[in-house]
Design a binder for these strands. Structure first.
Ligand SMILES: Nc1ccn([C@H]2C[C@H](O)[C@@H](COP(=O)(O)OP(=O)(O)OP(=O)(O)O)O2)c(=O)n1
Ligand SMILES: [Mg+2]
Ligand SMILES: [Mg+2]
Length: 839
DNA sequence: ATCCTCCCCTAC
DNA sequence: TAAGGTAGGGGAGGAT
């Protein structure tokens, strides 16, 4: 995530750099090429001034610290208390006084930073700094020569920087494996399942009325606040300097229970309904989940899949085929749509108006962009660029509403609409009734404005790529058509990072090859690009640089994965906090699965762990510099049952063996999805229920729900310990699950004396055959028909990729034991699922 | 070759 | 204070 975020900010930064220095770029020297600074604390000149210098003179400015991206930490003298923190936080990077920047500017070349080392740290610069010292020496020498040389040096230095990082990450990779020495080295107490179970019971009893009251109070207050906000917002107040939103909020909030602990007030540790509140307020969550809401509102039957023949027929014609429409500064436009007096003033959307705050700007209108304000910036940086910037809070309901109008209009005018996001879509106008695509675009834009009060821009061209690029040039509130004969001219000087699909990493790699524009990119052979970037990416680059894009408009597929993650405000005091958080996260994921009508088989838990020596992040309650860890379990039967999800998740969590205080982010993702319709899970459960109640009542009755579940999960754990980062819940099902296959008795060994055991262990093909036909049929469905093959051929493997396929299972060397395990696992899980569902 | 699985990269 | 999510594409590298 941090990489992504940083890339974005850098992109904005570079865009600014290229536009602001456009006129005089020839006279300005790129003194700071290859230098990427992170400013820590108060400095003279200010952080913003330094940022400006870096911008003007070819350097980089990082809002977030990252060992990978930052080359120098800039810092004035600090109180001793902070020095110790900084020493570990710096992670071996040079910590330099801002005078280095100023003097370099005065000298018009990059000076060695060594004389500018922070005094307090000068005697203790770690060994890495000597590495940078040499590099800087080279840099400053070559800085006098020419840009090409500088480039090479930058390449060298950053690639070495990456080498260091790569070593770290491979270590991290190892640490994700079970039983590796590293996990012992971490020496953190493993979260014992029984302990956690106790804690659940405890928390279930504890919260009581007190906590509920607090929540209610908060909700009530929020309601009142919202009313106030609405009143204020709907009033087209002329005093633009008076921002109603945050004044009201910040004054009222301190009385709420949440802010009782000032230091931890917004962390997971203090708020039992953190997950819920968090997602309610997260803009990225809003845009990330918007697609689900769109699917429901505009069912996909509207979209015809264009057939290839049709495409080829129209391919040769020179007529523009694609329109791309995107709302202008969407979040701002919506919020100020009834406040015309603000339209020519700089406005941005942000949670906070605090000029020192690290809240992020979500969207800035075009007057604000003239000040250099961009999405993703900290509000303090935005305010520094433009002190009179008007900040408004989010209004997600209004965004949804406007997006609905927007898409209604699009669907009305075009049968092939491909939604990109809440404010953006592609239209295929090949077969449009309106002959002139430009006319159609203007009709749509006009109608959007008249309906919503918000402006949209449009790009029209022969394919999706060119239409998208055209939109960018058309903004704001305009449209642009790029005919085929203008494509070459348009692309020739276009910077490569303007191409969709080229982000920070690809841009950097290309620039190391001295490729800055699409024109230069065209000089590289396709083979060379494919060698350097892979087959598909290479071809994409080759095509895009020529304005070629073969994608078709209108293909919306069903989702392949569903997940939820939180990487902000995550601060756990103890296992109780983390447990509660995980349970809530599971509930969230469960609801999303239900909302999409799917069940899933593959569970991935992602953890962000504070990197060693990483201090408190620059962003308030942010996750900062983290290692990304992830573990996966695959279960044989797709589920959306909240309790099953929780069990699996807790199992996964336990396998991390991590000190919860180090956790900065948690995410749960479900994949290998099957539609509920197809698996008919509900019916299966009911049938299992009646079957178990009648036929084998004695067995079921003696079978404690929790023990069944635990058993089931425990079996999974055994396989998991062996497997490493990824594991199959039921090792017998995975052909590559090593050790367990050699000792099928593990299955038996892991069972307790529960009454279920003997019966299940004797289950075999015969037992499966004896199942009532409905049950068998549905179990068979749940396995995509594999049960038939299993019974008829006597093979139990289920490793085919196709979900619904009967797929001839490959020759199995698994014996009867495997088959037993398979049956056992299946029945056991079904029991567990069923039992929990009925509780 | 062709698949998987585990990530990284990208976009909004 | 503040709410740094979500999901698909695809590359690397191992298994088959
Ligand atoms: N880093 C980002 C990018 C986008 N958004 C949200 C706010 C935007 O309004 C909306 C749409 O994204 P766009 O990229 O379309 O940006 P805008 O519509 O704001 O501006 P533009 O006029 O460039 O389209 O998504 C966000 O919250 N954070
Ligand atoms: Mg937009
Ligand atoms: Mg957009």
């Amino acid at each position: 995530y941090m990489v992504e975020k940083n890339r974005k900010l850098q992109e904005q930064f570079r865009t600014e750099a290229s536009t602001s220095s456009h006129s005089d770029s020839s006279s300005l020297k790129a003194i700071f090429h290859g230098v990427s600074i992170f400013v820590d604390g108060f400095t003279v000149p200010s952080s913003q001034e330094l940022r400006g210098y870096m911008l003007k003179y070819g350097g980089r400015f990082e809002n977030y610290f990252s060992r990978h991206r930052v080359t120098h930490i800039i810092c004035s003298n600090l109180p001793d208390s902070k020095i110790k923190n900084l020493r570990s936080f710096s992670g071996g990077l040079p910590v330099v006084k801002p005078k280095w920047i100023v003097d370099s500017l005065a000298a018009n070349k990059l000076l060695s930073w060594l004389p500018y080392q922070l005094d307090q740290l000068a005697d203790n610069q770690p060994k890495l700094s000597s590495f940078f010292a040499t590099k800087d020496g080279l840099l400053s020498n070559d800085g006098l020569t020419d840009t090409v040389c500088q480039l090479h040096d930058i390449g060298d230095s950053s690639s070495k920087g990456r080498t260091v990082k790569d070593i770290n990450s491979s270590e991290v990779g190892q640490s994700t494996e079970y039983g590796s020495p590293l996990s012992e080295e971490l020496g953190q107490e493993n979260a014992d399942v029984s302990v956690i179970t106790e804690l659940i019971n405890c928390t279930k009893e504890c919260p009581g009325s007190c906590r509920t009251e607090q929540i209610d109070m908060d909700k009530e207050q929020m309601g009142i606040l919202r009313e106030e906000l609405k009143d204020n917002l709907s009033e087209p107040t002329t005093s633009a300097g008076n921002h109603p939103s945050d004044r009201t909020r910040t004054r009222s909030l301190p009385t709420s229970a949440v802010t009782k602990h000032p230091s931890m007030g917004h962390s997971t540790a203090e708020d039992p309904s953190f997950v819920e509140n968090y997602f309610k307020n997260s803009r990225l969550h809003f845009i990330g989940t918007w697609r689900h809401r769109y699917r429901k509102r505009f069912p996909s039957s509207l979209n015809q899949v264009k057939c290839a023949i049709n495409l080829k027929a129209s391919d040769d014609s020179k007529k523009a085929r694609v329109i791309h429409v995107d709302m202008d500064c969407f979040f701002v436009s919506v919020v100020i749509r009834n406040l015309p007096e603000l339209h020519d003033k700089p406005v941005a959307i942000c949670h906070s108006d605090n000029p020192k705050g690290t809240a992020e700007i979500s969207s800035a209108n075009y007057p604000a962009r003239d000040y250099g304000i961009r999405a993703g910036m900290f509000v303090r940086d935005a305010k520094a660029c433009c002190p009179h910037l008007v900040i408004f809070p989010y209004n997600f309901e209004a965004y949804t509403e406007v997006a609905d109008h927007f898409y209604s209009i699009l669907h009305k005018h075009c049968k092939t609409v491909q939604a990109v996001s809440c404010d953006e879509a592609f239209l295929d106008v090949t077969d449009s009734e309106v002959q002139d695509p430009q006319l159609l675009a203007s009709i749509i834009r006009k109608e959007v404005f008249e309906t919503t009060g918000c402006t949209a821009s449009a790009g029209i061209s022969g394919n999706m790529l060119m239409a998208r690029l055209a939109t960018k040039t058309a903004k704001p509130n305009g449209q642009s058509y790029i005919p085929l004969e203008k494509v070459d001219e348009y692309l020739c000087k276009l910077p490569i990072n303007a191409l969709p699909g080229i982000g920070y990493v690809l841009e950097d790699k290309l620039k190391k090859q001295n490729i800055w524009t699409c024109g230069q990119l065209r000089m590289v052979s396709k083979e060379s690009l494919q060698k350097d970037f892979g087959a598909k990416t290479g071809e994409m680059l080759w095509n895009y640089s020529r304005g070629v894009d073969n994608r078709m408009v209108g293909t919306i597929q069903e989702s392949k994965s569903i997940g939820a993650e939180v990487n902000w405000g995550v601060r756990f005091k103890d296992a109780k906090d983390s447990k509660l958080f995980l349970v809530n996260l599971c509930k969230e994921v469960h609801l999303r699965l239900q909302g999409c009508g799917v069940h899933g088989r593959k569970f991935t838990l992602k953890i962000k762990k504070r990197r060693k020596d990483a201090g408190e992040p620059a962003k308030y309650m942010g996750c900062g510099d983290c290692e990304n860890l992830s573990h996966t379990i695959t279960v044989p039967v797709a589920t959306d049952d909240v309790d099953v999800i929780q069990r699996i998740t807790m199992q996964l969590f336990g396998s991390f063996n991590i000190d919860v205080k180090e956790i900065r982010g948690v995410g749960l993702q479900i994949s290998r999805l099957e539609s509920v319709e197809a698996s008919k899970q509900g019916l299966e459960r009911n049938l299992l229920k009646s079957w178990l109640a009648s036929t084998s009542a004695n067995q079921v009755e003696q079978c404690d729900t929790n023990s069944v579940v635990k058993e089931t999960i425990d079996i999974g754990l055994e396989g998991q310990k062996v497997d490493g980062a990824s594991s199959d819940m039921f090792p017998h099902l995975a052909q590559n699950s090593n050790q367990v296959d050699d000792s099928p008795s593990d299955c038996k060994a892991s069972l307790d004396q529960s009454i279920t055991r003997p019966a299940l262990c004797h289950l075999d093909i015969g037992v499966i055959k004896s199942l009532p036909p409905e049950v068998f049929s549905e179990l068979n469905d749940a396995y995509g028909g594999k049960l038939v093959a299993f019974v008829s051929k006597g093979k139990g493997k289920s490793n085919s990729k196709g979900d619904g396929e009967v797929s001839g299972s490959s020759p199995s060397m698994h014996s009867q034991q495997v088959v037993k395990g398979w049956c056992f696992s299946l029945i056991n899980l079904s029991l567990a699922t069923f039992s929990l569902a009925t509780n």
